[in-house]
Design a protein around this nucleic acid. Structure first.
Lengths: 326, 326
DNA sequence: TTGAAAGCGCTACCAT
DNA sequence: ATGGTAGCGCTTTCAA
């Protein structure tokens, strides 16, 4: 491809200096109408486009945030991403989205990302020291995960109260045999499981009816199948998230169990998706838009050295939303 | 916020020239191990981060594509976006995502986008001349829309054969009273409607049983309600897309119509979403991943002046996927 | 109204 | 192995 057209080429073509071209292009005053038109014509003629690098170098504005998510097709991350995009748009910032797909790509993705963004927010599976290594000092906001180094900032998700609500709701409806479809990460049971266990214990109920699901609709279906195989007496089940819950709904249907009569299902996340399925999903809902927005806001503060959002405000709490499945 | 730390500051702190700093940072050889470490330490100490603008200015690599979509939360666009992200990732390119939300934002979004990307792909509602005005010569790929100016490139969606298949499928199952839930844009009936009408005519069937739906689940539900009110005899309905179809499924259920027995529903797009609902959605499926990938590929060719993909390859055809709803 | 000069922060190239 | 010089393409003083 041919050498790029620079402001000098335009200047030469229009017979003016390059400062004058700059004036014409940026709508500064102090320029003769005719000259301006001549310059604009020349620019168009040559197909001139200002270099964003050169421009960015001198006008030190323009903020770009890297949003790292494991899977855009997972509706939870889609919602968070939408929230982040909206918050960024309101500020005139740009968001580069990186889908790490399988987590093996995370390291190389980060390496690429770091070169083009001012700050990074999102979901990472790497440990903090590895992260720190790849991030070369860029401000970073971790979502849904505690940080232990002052190096990072994070948005916490607290589902304790919401899950307690959910268990209370089920108990009030007479359920005593309540299970959970957890999503076991590398570190064993999830916090959501712990919240579940805590709530169950409060009610004097056993919390050992637990299955593990892969994070997908099919994963949820399979897991419910398996759990019900082990514990046929189960009448209600909480799930790690809505995607898994939708799978559970599907499996229940195949097994001939009517939801919520034969089996109550409570999801987690409160996604739009839950309103689409039948029966509509009861779920411990998170304000996904707010999660994305908080991450952007905090990244901005980190970036500009503004006072950070205090811990309390960096927390998003789950709230039980009762629909039809429980 | 304080002045930014430059390579010169690091050089001074480490007591070397800035070229040496550059060498250390970029892992070039030709540098003493000790010096390198000293530089790296100084850089870390000062919190130095290279300016992406300065770096981009001199190393003229790094490609950034702007992806413009009307609504990331609409699962169709999510899938296309995921396809585009993946294709870009494979090339080491960056994708800035712009969600135009309400189309009123499109113009300002474009203005912002243009300053930070090398090419733009996606869905635009602006006319070609307005687009051209905002795009300042940037390569652009329009998805799902014909272009009439050589200025643009576009990815076409052809659902003619797929919709013909769908109608054939319905007719073979004995349906004769087949309607459509269209999504009327500003320009009247959609191409999808025309394909529907064409297929119906081929079968000697009337194609006037048409309703209009807003692009949302609720919009689809409402529209089916309305259409069925006008034409209670309807036994099958095609929809503009899957999102509307899911709404139709919901409305049918509320109206006590069993799908597919009392009412067959055929969507368009073939989204993942269709496998989640019950009954699973029969749909004229598009390869959404390919749409996104094609847009990226073509943008790259435009960018580098490579021979463009020929028209035939820029087309994505709908294919009937029979699941449960028809 | 226009132009000359300086400089944004970095890397490439040539010396040393 | 290290430093000097030049220059990427643009905008911003400051003069004229």
């Amino acid at each position: 491809m041919g050498r790029r057209v620079t402001i000098n080429d335009v200047a030469r073509a229009a017979g003016v200096s390059r400062q004058t071209v700059s004036r014409a292009l940026n709508d500064k005053g102090e320029i003769d109408g005719g000259t301006k038109q001549r310059v604009l014509d020349a620019a168009k003629e040559l197909g001139y486009r200002p270099s964003r690098f050169a421009r960015g170098l001198v006008r030190q504005d323009s903020t770009t945030i890297g949003l790292v998510i494991p899977d855009l097709l997972n509706p939870f991350f889609t919602e968070v991403a939408a929230g982040a995009l909206e918050a960024a748009r309101a500020r005139g910032w740009h968001v580069i989205v990186y889908d790490t797909a399988d987590s093996t790509a995370e390291e190389s993705t980060l390496a690429v990302a770091v070169s083009q963004v001012d700050a990074v927010v999102g979901y990472f599976s790497l440990g903090e020291s590895e992260l720190d290594g790849h991030l070369t000092g860029i401000p970073a906001v971790l979502i849904g995960r505690e940080h232990h180094t002052p190096r990072f900032s994070s948005i916490r998700v607290d589902g304790r109260a919401g899950i307690r609500e959910a268990v209370g709701h089920l108990v009030a409806r007479g359920h005593t045999s309540i299970g959970m479809l957890d999503h076991a990460g590398r570190a064993g049971p999830s916090p959501r499981h712990d919240w579940f266990a805590g709530a169950m214990t409060e009610h004097g109920l056993p919390a050992h009816l637990v299955g593990n699901a892969v994070q997908s609709v099919d994963g949820g279906a399979e897991a419910l199948h398996e759990l019900l195989g082990r514990h046929p007496g189960l009448t209600a089940v909480l799930t790690y998230n809505d995607v898994i819950a939708v799978g559970a709904l599907k499996a229940a249907r195949r097994l001939g169990r009517i939801v919520p009569d034969d089996l109550a299902v409570v999801g987690f996340d409160g996604l739009q998706l839950g309103t689409v399925v039948d029966p509509a999903l009861t779920s411990v809902a998170l304000d996904t838009t707010r999660i994305g927005a908080l991450a952007i806001e905090q990244a901005g503060r980190l970036l500009h050295g503004d006072p950070l959002l205090p811990d309390e405000e960096l927390q998003v709490d789950g709230v039980l939303v009762v629909r039809e499945s429980a």
